[in-house]
Design a protein around this nucleic acid. Structure first.
Lengths: 217, 217
DNA sequence: GTCTATAAATAGATAGAC
DNA sequence: GTCTATCTATTTATAGAC
């Protein structure tokens, strides 16, 4: 969420239109991409008009950047905290995975948005955005290195391991959103998967991928 | 590739402008998405002009549909052929994985395009497109079921297994394209990964995920 | 803070010459 | 088959009233 600390506080919940714009923008950018969304669409979804968008944000691109940065900051914090836990690497890793899945639940716009950013090679991303992405990857690398140093994990390419864990989580979350469209649920590939089953599967898959010893049940 | 069989053949390689449009469109849609690409961009990339696009294709959307369908047909064929091999399921599976990686090499526009289609919930996809997607998923399901029936694979949710295999492959291929942008290669997360290492990793990961017995080396 | 109205640029699509 | 010129609609962004 965007920081509200810099703006004046008023009493009696007087509608935070900036937050409404942010949320509407996040949902729409996630669903249709930067170019697929018009300022008018965002304004309508936030039950406001064009002018209010520009009252709160400098430009469409600036608004998009805030949405992406908010998302990356959250993931960066999650990864860094997981890597800093005083636990063995497998616990750190499963915590990271559970956190990612939970985050996709709390910020449903996050998975498609991140998927698209990667798919497009993040052309709209300035240096500070790349720095945020680097934070996540670095923290993940720390977990892996620690697991390998302790003999818990086998040696694997860090980039490929990263893709192997991030990929399915993002893809499945995006799939869930796609399944929500009318007439999709009948198709087997859009079948609903319980949250708990998802988490278990992803954690098992990661440990099976990395485990140095024979596979665990 | 689009079928050229319906059009007249001329001698001396007289430039197939339709194929040029198709390739340019595939590359651009892949890199920037449907809404991120203008007809003019495609025309320029194909060293033609707007009018030629509409001479060959009915509309921007029709052109996009052809690109997506061509891709899905190719993956569908790959998956169906892998599932029809007279081999044990693990061989079928590794063949499917190797084929996917090879396809991403031959049609570099495929991974980002498919990633985006999933991320967006395929809003532009008509019934016949969904049928193509279903073909791929069904063939994958056959491989899994056969592996489980023969005791080679453990029981896993088909959808989650599908995401776990497709996700990393697509994500990594998209990452590779993103890495090609200037100033990216220095970052660790955009480091180059040899083709062979990628294939081995993905096949190992899939087998470790699904294997019924203890992990294989 | 919120709105209407409008400017200025861009994009999908077509007409028609060659 | 290939081109230039153009129509029309949409879209980002701003001006200014309330």
């Amino acid at each position: 969420m965007p920081s509200t600390s810099t703006r004046r506080r008023r009493r009696l919940t007087p509608r935070d239109s900036r937050a409404d714009v942010f949320t509407a923008a996040a949902e729409l950018f996630s669903a249709r991409g930067f170019d697929g969304v018009g300022i008018d669409d965002i304004a309508h979804a936030a039950r406001l008009n064009k002018a209010m968008i520009y009252y709160h944000f400098d430009s469409k691109r600036a608004l998009y950047r805030e949405v992406v940065h908010d998302m990356l900051r959250a993931v960066g914090t999650l990864a860094t905290e997981a890597a800093s836990r005083p636990d063995p690497a497998d616990v750190q890793l499963t915590a990271f995975i559970a956190g990612l899945i939970q985050m996709a639940d709390e910020r449903p716009w996050f998975p498609p948005l991140m998927l698209r950013e990667i798919a497009e090679g993040a052309p709209r991303l300035e240096p500070d955005t790349l720095a945020l992405m680097k934070t996540v990857f670095t923290a993940f690398g720390r977990i892996l290195a620690e697991g390998q140093a302790s003999g818990l994990f086998r040696p694997v390419n860090t980039v490929l391991a990263y893709m192997s864990i991030l990929g399915p989580i993002l893809l499945n979350a995006a799939r869930e959103r796609a399944a929500a469209r009318p007439g999709r649920l009948e198709l087997p590939m859009f079948a609903e998967v319980p949250h708990s089953e998802l988490t278990t599967h992803m954690q098992q898959a990661a440990l099976r991928l990395l485990s140095a010893q024979e596979s665990r049940p």
